[in-house]
Write a protein that binds this DNA or RNA. Structure first.
Lengths: 148, 148
DNA sequence: TCGTTAATTCGCCAATTGACGAATTATAGA
DNA sequence: TCTATAATTCGTCAATTGGCGAATTAACGA
């Protein structure tokens, strides 16, 4: 029951649902999620913590950057099925499609630029470099979302 | 997105999850749910309202009694899939098994007796008579839960 | 028609949640 | 080593939620 409620609670918030849907395309760093979701870094961080508690997402640290991705095949069945339910149910949601579109433009930008822009407008920031490791996890993320 | 969040919000509370799981065995009246869940009638009523808003359950009025049952095949795909996810994920939960056991003893009792006991201990109450219509919906409920 | 009663709605309170900024941690680079 | 920075944790606040009892609604039955 603990895990079930952690999952439903985690998915009972629009921002968190949008974050999970955004990760369908592969892993993202916090700064990209901040850019997409338009909330303060500390707020995003807390949301990601809740999603991670529910085992819906995993994270990988690379230097100063933390990359988040969807839970893998090692996740509990309840988690994988919940993600499958969400993706199927949200596939044609206007909000999700809009986010997917905006995410595309975010991914086209140099993460450094996103970082700098956030630095200027706010005062804390994060961004991700396009390292080989990141490319690998992005590919894995794509494979996962395709498999569902 | 509206429906998705209504569903996850509705299922993000232990009492409501227990109520939905209890309805797997067929329809129940509010008084039986009060007995099972051990909360005030007004509280149960509010929970059922939220579940109904999310289209996870439906209700049927029979005289003074209102019988709740799981959503049927006419419910949106997201709803039916969410219920299927919940039933699969909660199948072996100790809390659910315990509730199922206690529900059995509740169902064995004459609803009138449950009603009277609630009347005495509290001062508001509800119960359900074993009418032919109730038996029909109970049967339908069993068919639904078997199909998942 | 008038009580009785199953259930809901309403109003209130304590606890939780989501948001933010400030402070902190950890890592890269000068 | 010292600075800059990506991200988190902490403290605070307003808004929401879950709980209850009281009042209300709707339907049966004397």
């Amino acid at each position: 029951m603990r895990l079930i409620l952690a999952i439903t609670n985690a998915l009972a918030d629009e921002t968190r649902v949008r974050a999970v849907l955004a990760l369908q395309g592969g892993e993202l760093c916090v700064c990209q999620l901040i850019e997409l979701l338009g909330l303060a870094p500390s707020t995003i961080s807390k949301h990601l913590f809740l999603l991670k508690q529910a085992q819906l997402i995993e994270s990988r640290k690379e230097g100063r950057w933390i990359h988040y991705r969807l839970a893998g095949d090692d996740a509990p069945q309840a988690v994988r099925d919940a993600l499958a339910w969400l993706f199927a149910s949200a596939a044609k949601e206007p909000d999700a499609l809009d986010d997917a579109k905006r995410l595309k433009t975010i991914l086209k930008q140099d993460p450094e630029d996103i970082c700098k822009r956030q630095m200027q407008s706010l005062k804390s920031c994060s961004c991700a470099p396009a390292t080989p490791a990141a490319a690998k996890w992005r590919k894995a993320g794509l494979a996962i979302s395709r498999a569902r």
